[in-house]
């Protein structure tokens, strides 16, 4: 498999790996039958302007090197961002950050984008006034 150095680095030393107890939102995407599952946990707080920002974010992933690297990168890109900024993170940003992905692994970056969005949606659902 032709992975970039960056993919291998993020696979080897993933950032933000783990679980957040009492997470404010959890996004569960993927299907074990297909070999890739990502769970993204977020902790949200309001800043002084009253914007909701992702204070902490972690992931748990079952999958190949690309799945692990993309999960890690999406959490890194989202950390500290406001929810509306984080929602704009796309799979393209993740792929770009990693310097590319093999074509048959592109779906992993999509899963990372979906995972993050699912976590934000989950938070919003729980916090409807």
């Amino acid at each position: 498999m032709d992975y970039t150095e960056k993919v291998l680095e993020y696979f080897r030393n993933p950032r933000n790996m783990g679980r957040i107890e009492n997470a404010d939102g959890i996004g569960k995407v993927g299907n074990p039958v297909c070999g890739d599952v990502m769970w993204i946990y977020i902790k949200v707080r309001k800043n002084e302007k009253g914007e909701e920002i992702i204070e902490d974010i972690k992931f748990e992933t079952f999958g190949c090197a690309a799945a692990i690297a993309t999960s890690s990168v999406v959490t890194e890109l989202a950390k500290g961002k406001t929810l509306s900024e984080a929602e704009k993170i796309s799979n393209k940003d993740v792929v770009e950050f990693l310097g590319g992905l093999p074509p048959i692994k592109k779906h992993c970056s999509l899963l990372a984008e979906e995972g993050l969005k699912a976590a934000i949606n989950d938070y919003r659902k729980k916090n409807k006034k």
Binding site: M1, L8, F11, R12, G35, D36, F62, G63, C64, A65, A67, I68
Partner: peptide, 14 residues
């Protein structure tokens, strides 16, 4: 169980 083969192989490769 609970992990994916390629991830193990790449780690072995390292």
């Amino acid at each position: 169980k609970y992990v994916e083969g390629e991830s193990i192989l790449l780690n072995l490769d390292f």
